[in-house]
Computed example of a mutant assay.
Amino acid sequence: MLLLLLLQISLSCLWLGHGEVVTSFESSCPQFFFRETPPNEALEPESPAWICQRYKNQYFFATLYDRSRRIPVYSAYLYQPGSGTRPKTWLVEPQLMGLSYPKTMEREWTLSKYYNVSSEQIGKSQAVLQDYKNLTGLNRGHLNPSGHHSDSSSRTATFSLTNIVPQDEKLNGGAWNNYEQQTMMRRTVGCNTTYVVVGAVPGNNYIAKGRVNKPSHIWSSACCEVDKNHREAWGVIAENDKNEVQLLKLGELEEVLTHLYGRGEVYLFDSDCPRE
């Protein structure tokens, strides 16, 4: 027991980040949602996990994760772009194996070495790096992109596989990248705070021998606070096999998602965010 305690203390110096599995976003990390209101239940999968993504004892974004399909449903964050290098370390979420594991995003090899956890155990309820090996025409697509964050800590936090989906290679490097880097910059001029919810619609195809779902669509939505009395909003959606992005009003995107998910009307933001 003493040896285990000392090992855990020493590991606290090595941990890269923190990702806490919680019971709701309203009570744990509501700051990433406009008026502290997450999307409604119409997006929730059958096996959901609510993750407050944390690094160096600070929350950076929130992710609703689909344990069975091993992809995020959506990630929510504040748009705060800045210059910086792209991280290279990929992380997983130990608490998806059980709440007895550390509240940390961690590298697979660290879990294997210090906690005697196998890749098979990690992969039961989430994607692992092996799932994204040898892809053809697809790559690891961020929902919450590192380039929308201002420093190394916030950028590193986005490199969790719980924030990744199999995305069409041309789309990810083409029209979707143009939206993330160019359209977002233009649309947010004059915004004091911009709340973003970006997600993926589950598809009928899988990678990694049926382990990880390939989304049929990738979508993103934004609610911009210009001042206390003025707000702007928009959304985009793309089929995950075409290099095209459709720019929509927020209300239009919610209507499209209502049809695609088929679980009732979708509401991405609090009603004070304009739909027209």
Rank of each mutant, 00 (worst) to 15 (best):
L257T: 08
S154R: 11
A208R: 02
A233Q: 11
E93I: 02
L64M: 03
S152V: 03
I71D: 10
M185I: 13
L6N: 10
Q121T: 03
G17Y: 12
L11R: 11
F25D: 06
N116L: 15
C191T: 05
D66N: 15
E232V: 11
S75D: 09
G264Q: 05
Q182R: 06
S152K: 06
Y114W: 15
L78G: 01
K113L: 14
R107G: 12
L247V: 11
Y206C: 04
V266N: 02
H217S: 12
F34S: 01
T63I: 04
E44D: 13
N163H: 00
G251E: 12
P215K: 01
D151G: 01
S12V: 15
G173M: 06
W234T: 14
D151P: 03
G203V: 13
W219M: 10
V245E: 00
Q80E: 12
Y101R: 05
S112R: 04
T110N: 08
Y206S: 15
G173K: 03
L268I: 07
E108F: 03
T258H: 14
K88R: 06
P274H: 08
I237T: 10
I207M: 01
G123E: 01
T85V: 15
A208D: 08
T183Y: 02
Y206K: 04
P274D: 15
A49Y: 02
L2D: 14
Q246V: 13
Q53L: 01
L99V: 07
T158V: 03
L135S: 14
L3N: 14
N240T: 06
F33N: 07
Y55C: 05
Q80W: 13
P102G: 01
L143D: 12
G199N: 05
S118K: 05
K228N: 14
V92P: 05
R275W: 14
V256G: 09
R140M: 09
Q126E: 08
Y101M: 00
L4N: 15
H142E: 04
Q95C: 04
C29A: 13
N204C: 00
K249V: 03
P72H: 07
S160T: 07
E244P: 01
D241T: 11
L99F: 06
N240C: 04
Y79A: 09
G98T: 04
K209C: 13
T104E: 15
V189K: 10
F25W: 03
R69D: 12
N172F: 06
W90T: 11
P39F: 06
Q53N: 09
T85A: 14
A127E: 04
S150K: 08
N243I: 07
P94W: 11
F159S: 13
H142Q: 15
N213I: 00
S24L: 06
D241P: 11
I237E: 09
Q126Y: 01
E232H: 11
F34K: 04
H142A: 04
G123V: 01
L99C: 03
G137T: 04
M185D: 12
L91W: 08
I207P: 02
Y59D: 13
E244I: 06
P81G: 07
F61R: 02
L268F: 10
S100G: 11
P81M: 07
Y267G: 15
N213G: 11
P30C: 07
R211W: 01
R187K: 11
S10E: 12
T85C: 12
E106M: 06
I164C: 09
S24E: 10
A42V: 09
M185R: 08
N116P: 07
I207N: 09
W50I: 02
S119C: 11
V198C: 12
